[in-house]
Design a binder for these strands. Structure first.
Lengths: 131, 131
DNA sequence: ATTTGACCTTACAGTGACTGTAACCCTTAC
DNA sequence: GTAAGGGTTACAGTCACTGTAAGGTCAAAT
């Protein structure tokens, strides 16, 4: 299986797969006689693992560590859970921060007439002395 | 007022202020006899404006455009509102995506024993054939 | 047989919004 | 005089890719 097909299967781009190999997130793919990368089911599974971890918002480096843990029969689930909880906390923080932004944005957007006049509560919010 | 004091006042870092000047987000600061940047109330107001826009999640380039609009008496609030609404939509999309991540993470974290055993539903979720 | 188009390869630059580091100059206090 | 703590520039690094260039390979159509 060539890289484009692997990309299609995993939902990654060919460039991203090459990038993961370069960054040693996954072991280097075997090459055909023509020098093309070849992917088998095992390699695909690694790529899918990374894809799913990334889709859950784990950093590439965390995704890599999780992959190593998944391949290590001596692992303890405590280590994995700790990473996941840490990440979950970060995600929750991000959500709360974005919700604060949204609340403020919704507030000022609701006040702005959005017509040809210059008067604008959105800009007032950004420049005003009264927050 | 030197750059460190301006940084303290605005909540930006000195490096960030220099970066904004370099990127022409704000006009270059006047310099003292020693070549140090000098900040007055007007410059500080520009910096605070950018800081607030960034805190609401606007990109630096959008923040710049909003600053120009705020200084333009010929502006129409419609243009500002459009930008804000667009941004609000992006923020809402981000929130929804993060909430999906959170729900999945909470689900698997709740299933994981987090002890010395290798068995781990978190890793199962990432590698498993059944999502 | 050739050409076209789609694939593959590497290498390097660019993205966004900074942050870190190095090397140097200036000011202030002791 | 010297040491700490400012300031200056310039350049590299971050993260996770994406874009671009320049070229090699393959399969099918002409």
């Amino acid at each position: 299986m060539n890289i484009a097909e692997a990309a299609k299967y995993t939902g990654l781009s060919s460039k991203t797969i090459r990038y993961y190999e370069q960054e040693k997130i996954i072991p280097p793919a075997k090459r055909g006689d023509n020098g093309y990368r070849q992917y088998d089911a095992d390699q695909l599974a690694l790529l899918v693992f990374i894809k799913r971890a990334r889709d859950l918002g784990f950093s590439l480096s965390d995704s890599h560590e999780l992959l190593l843990l998944s391949l290590d029969p001596e692992r303890s689930s405590a280590v994995v859970k700790q990473k996941a909880v840490q990440h979950l906390n970060k995600v929750n923080d991000q959500i709360m921060q974005l919700q604060k932004m949204r609340d403020i944005l919704e507030g000022v957007v609701g006040l702005c007439s959005g017509d040809s006049r210059a008067e604008c509560p959105i800009l007032d919010k950004l420049s005003g002395a009264s927050q």
